[in-house]
Nucleic acid binder design. Structure first.
Lengths: 240, 240
DNA sequence: TGAATAGTGTCTTTCAGACAATATGCC
DNA sequence: GGCATATTGTCTGAAAGACACTATTCA
């Protein structure tokens, strides 16, 4: 016996096939205490109860993947309105003990100030951890963070993501520190400034920042419109 | 009334949440008649019946995403055992008129020889189309192909994907043509050979290929083990 | 020997990377 | 003046890019 082929939405049987669950998980980076951190939540429920994991959750039937990632991050951690990009989709059949769960991983970047963490019902604790010193993680989240770090380093080479780590006004030393911390290596100050200058994407704010008994530093802001990724190459310090 | 929190797989209710469908779609590239082509199928069923679309289909509950992409490509088109990499996941709520369908897009590359196309039950026709002259496509598949082409060009800069377009033994002119066709621009022959030579990834097969009344060309093969993407940069002709 | 493609080297320019002294503010 | 960080330019080596002639085969 052969089923009649559906010819419209009304005739289409949505329950014909068994379906997996789809979640989003977000690796959110920030810089705090001169260290690259990711936000983790301590799970309050089975599976991996009491272990740390990435914020994330099920995708609603009527929301886009981007919206789901945004919503989950905001709900679970209080981190809202940040730079977000899709990374990779992890779908090994056994990666979640509950059922078949496919997760669309996202990467986010924010500056540390103005972020007030909050714990949700699913998470007993929320905290920043150094990417170089992670706790034991549930699911395949260690692999996801590893992937996100590779992407972050790669992305910083050719897109102006570094500014997402900084407040709207920043000094050149602060910008350099972002690269140094993400790449975990020191950079020559003169070469750095030479390259940044050639890009013509910074606006001198005619303000200075003083902190300590030394010469104050000029403050700059990033002019997004001036950035041309096709014509100008972006800063490349660590080729992969 | 509050549900008891599940503490094991047995207590977990997989049907608590409504779930989307998940598919894989594959953009497979090849070079044929000096043109970059993608494989399309003419849909035999609703929706988008009689329009062209990417090969793909629903992910099985017990197969990985990579396996699903491989299987669908092989089943629907007869193209099996090829280079495959995950691209991006498209999940706009209205992208499929049947129901909520999230698709994990893949990119594949193969050489044209040895491929015998076959049509499956879902497809009335299977054929190669120039990426520069595509027919009207169903779903958001035009966007997916566009994304794939960008990735392909980018990937060719730093990974040895070009060889996937070629048979095991090839001439330097054939290799150069791959880059010229993918980037849609001409390359200087001497500069190309200089760069390829510096990479030390080719083995002289001590054979020649003759076709026509002119000097025969040497045949080479690619030595995968010699390729070091971290130390050596790969060929970069068209920076993005 | 003419037609067609294979194969080869030099020069110039650009950019990355190494490198150190002066400037400015606070105490 | 001492301390701490900000700011600035030159030189060198490597690699990209422009460019043209000789070699080999067949008809």
């Amino acid at each position: 016996m052969v089923d009649k082929e559906p010819e419209s939405k009304e005739e289409y049987d949505v329950n014909k096939f068994e379906r997996p669950s789809v979640t989003t998980d977000v690796v959110i980076f920030t810089i705090k205490n001169d260290d690259l951190k990711v936000l983790l939540i301590k799970r309050g429920v089975w599976p991996f109860k009491d272990m740390w994991a990435l914020p994330g959750g099920f995708v609603g039937m009527k929301e886009s993947l981007d919206d789901a990632a945004k919503r989950e991050l905001c709900e679970e951690t209080g981190v809202c309105n940040v730079y977000l990009e899709q990374l990779y989709t992890f779908g090994e059949p056994k990666r979640d003990p509950r059922t078949r769960v496919i997760t669309v991983a996202y990467m986010a970047v924010t500056n540390q100030s103005n972020i007030k963490l909050r714990a949700s019902s699913d998470a007993t604790e929320v905290d920043w951890y150094s990417v170089y010193n992670l706790p034991k993680l549930g699911f395949d989240h260690a692999k996801i963070i590893d992937y996100a770090l590779t992407r972050l380093r790669y992305k910083l080479e050719y897109k102006p993501v570094a500014f997402e780590f900084l407040p709207p006004k920043f000094t050149l030393t602060e910008l350099q520190k972002v690269y140094e911390i993400v790449y975990n290596k020191t950079i020559d100050k003169r070469n750095f400034r030479k390259k940044v200058n050639e890009l013509n994407v910074l606006k001198d704010m005619n303000e200075t920042k003083m902190e300590g008994a030394h010469r104050p530093a000029k403050l700059y802001s990033f002019i997004k419109e001036n950035f041309k990724s096709v014509e100008n190459k972006w800063i490349v310090f660590v080729p992969f």
